[in-house]
Write a protein that binds this DNA or RNA. Structure first.
Lengths: 218, 218
DNA sequence: TTGTCATCTGTCATCGACTGACATAAATTG
DNA sequence: CAATTTATGTCAGTCGATGACAGATGACAA
């Protein structure tokens, strides 16, 4: 990798770190782009060449996580049922967070703190999650051999996302505690949901009639 | 009600209508506050005395709906299980939408169209829904006699919200179609979830052990 | 090394969202 | 009608974000 590429990466990381520090100490709204840029000693204009908006820099890590989650889902074996695969992908993500180096972990924790204490950022995070949800639905639909517009894949992903989101309250940030809460919630979900609920292929059109058993295990 | 109050209400409604019209015809980002204010013949400064932001005017109806949903839930009899009560509250909300007069219905449809075609507004709507979710959880926890921090009420509300959200895709706006999709999804949910799943009282601490059956029906 | 080229960066100008301060106009109250 | 309260308009200013242009810097070939 050339010098140029490395410099850009360093500038980008420095901007994220400076932004998170300032957001955490002075608050998100109270922090200006000029302050962030000054901290890294670049012009405000340059900031916007790295990030599309002030929100973008705060949510860059969140966006990364969503990309990883999708990638992990795609990497799960086809033999797993959709919901199982989604849960395993989430476990992989949390494992990566737990095993990251200190700089990475620090960034992650600061990001979580800032996002969860700023309504505007929470909204942005939800937008990213919702956008990714569409991709997750497409992948689950593919696994089920169903149409992406069917209610079944939508429902499966919706249940998963709601469980995953329920892990994050205003106080929980530590990846270890997070993982524990996820397992608790998955136990709760497992107990609440009928066995094989994420396998039977039934579209909205046949919702009123009994579903035929269908296994997609391969 | 005095003249002053009535005038304010008329100005407010006019601002919402003008804003939705402009957002729909020119797009949300392309519409300026000045244009909205000019349409209603008030100063731009006055706009911000009625709405905190440009987003606020677009989501004022969404905020109203969330308030109604919570009120309907609170009004449901204690004899209903939490998930049933939530579903009935949602049905009430949709019924109110179906039975509203033309002006109201028109506003609602335009609002839906604008929100679902503008990422920034979709994010804002999600924020409102998430904020309301906290209140729904508190009410469900009260009904269960559980602590609001328990995972059980969180899970119940999360499943409900995800089902409700799955009704709205990019294309569905008509309240009648919406109601049909909701029923389809609830059928799907009913088939996927174990009977009594939203009744057993088990906190996060006891998640690993078998739950004792407990009825809160009164 | 040197010169050329692509790319990155800073400066400047501008727009639009949003806010505080102050003066004016209107409605409410006695 | 007079006094008080409250809504509105005007003005100035901050901050987020973008386009245009010029200068700086790394990449690369001769």
């Amino acid at each position: 990798m050339g010098l140029r590429e490395r410099k850009k990466q360093r500038t980008r990381d420095a901007l994220v770190d400076a932004a998170l520090d300032l957001f955490l100490s002075r608050g998100y709204e109270a922090t200006t782009i000029d302050q962030i840029a000054a901290e890294v000693e670049v012009s405000p204009r340059t900031f916007f060449r790295y990030f599309a908006s002030k929100e973008d820099v705060a949510l860059s890590l969140t966006a990364d996580e969503q990309r990883v989650l999708l990638a992990e889902l795609v990497a799960r074996p086809e033999s797993e049922s959709p919901f199982t695969a989604l849960c395993q992908a989430m476990r992989s993500l949390l494992k990566m967070l737990r095993e990251a180096d200190d700089a990475e972990t620090g960034r992650y924790l600061r990001c979580q703190k800032v996002v969860h204490s700023t309504p505007a950022l929470l909204a942005g995070a939800m937008r990213l999650i919702k956008e990714n949800e569409r991709r997750l639905v497409a992948e689950v639909a593919r696994r089920l051999g169903a149409d992406p517009w069917d209610l079944q894949p939508k429902f499966i992903v919706a249940v998963f996302v709601s469980v995953a989101l329920a892990c994050f309250d205003e106080r929980t940030q530590d990846p270890v505690v997070l993982a524990r809460r996820l397992e608790d919630l998955l136990t709760l979900a497992e107990r609440s949901l009928c066995p094989g609920w994420d396998l039977a292929a039934c579209s909205a059109e046949s919702a009123g009639r009994p579903a035929e058993a269908a296994s997609t295990t391969g």
